[in-house]
Design a protein around this nucleic acid. Structure first.
Lengths: 165, 165
DNA sequence: TCTACTTGCTTCGAATTCGAAGCAGGTCTA
DNA sequence: TAGACCTGCTTCGAATTCGAAGCAAGTAGA
């Protein structure tokens, strides 16, 4: 059985990670709100769509990609559609699936907001990091991401891992 | 003017960071809910208080520490107080300031929840990382955290820092 | 001391969030 | 084709979130 103790070094890394992501997110939200009245999630969704060759994705895939609940994404998609930044239509191959597609207005907004976004990320996250540090950070975090992605979130199945109370 | 371009390597690190923190947070929230009916913020607050020599902190300091809005912290403190996990009292030295203090029940809850918490952090975040990797991660993120902390979030004051466009 | 400004917390209103439940559409097997 | 189960999205209700506004206490300068 593995020792699940978290040593001081790990604890430091863990805390720093949480704090950094929180502070970064906060700064980003503020910049996006001022620049284009966008939420971070909305921005992420538009980015993902914009990077897709077809400009579209299934709702579920989007939710997974940006780490968001399905119902939450439905809500945000509604807002984005109202704003004319995306469109939603039933997928051609699977009738129950909805495909979200970025509009020209959506691409335009991204283009308008992106420079300021990069400025924040650059100034807050990478200011104290060398080019090499950035490479190392990516090298460390990418496998972690993949590991987390591959480990399915224990759902309603297999409840009760060991009598609690 | 500095080049605010975010190169592909940085972009990868940035995305991985956001994803990792999101997935981790999600897993943690789930574990905490099952184990002790706690929010991540609540858990963090209790942890900070528990680690303090006096078992207490000012509200504002707590809010800053866990990266949360003041009003949000007021709400959460209310919940924690209701649950008997903390107490609130006016600070002795500054009448307008409120000091939150962890109770024995709060400490007991932390003790009950912590093992499972460490298990999640261990299993999700540090599984793919060597001891050395963890050290490196901490070495990279700590300066970033300090940098972010030292750079005050541009508030309503001092808007327009220097003509942008 | 008085007046302006700052600081610390709470209240308020409006928007967002999530899980559970609901509802089509799909898939598998006999 | 029917019956049982799975998938994908949306609706629903309740809880949470945040910024703005409000209010009390502290501070500095005349």
């Amino acid at each position: 059985m593995p020792e699940h103790h978290v040593d001081p070094v790990q604890l430091g890394a863990y805390f720093a990670l949480i704090e950094v992501s929180g502070l970064l997110r906060h700064a980003i939200e503020q910049q996006l709100r001022e620049a284009g009245d966008l939420t971070f999630v909305q921005f992420q969704v538009l980015m993902r769509l914009g990077q897709s060759p077809t400009g579209s994705h299934r709702m579920t895939d989007l939710a997974d990609a940006v780490v968001y609940s399905r119902s939450g994404l439905t809500y945000q998609a509604g807002r984005l559609e109202e704003a004319g930044l995306i469109t939603r239509s039933p997928s051609p191959d699977d009738e129950r699936s909805t495909t979200a597609t970025i509009t020209d207005a959506g691409r335009a907004l991204i283009a308008r907001v992106l420079p300021g976004h990069e400025e924040v990320v650059s100034g807050m996250l990478f200011e104290p990091l060398s080019q090499d540090d950035a490479r190392t950070l990516a090298r460390l975090l990418t496998p972690v991401r993949d590991h987390m992605r591959s480990t399915p979130p224990r759902s309603a199945t297999s409840r009760r891992r060991r009598g609690g109370s």
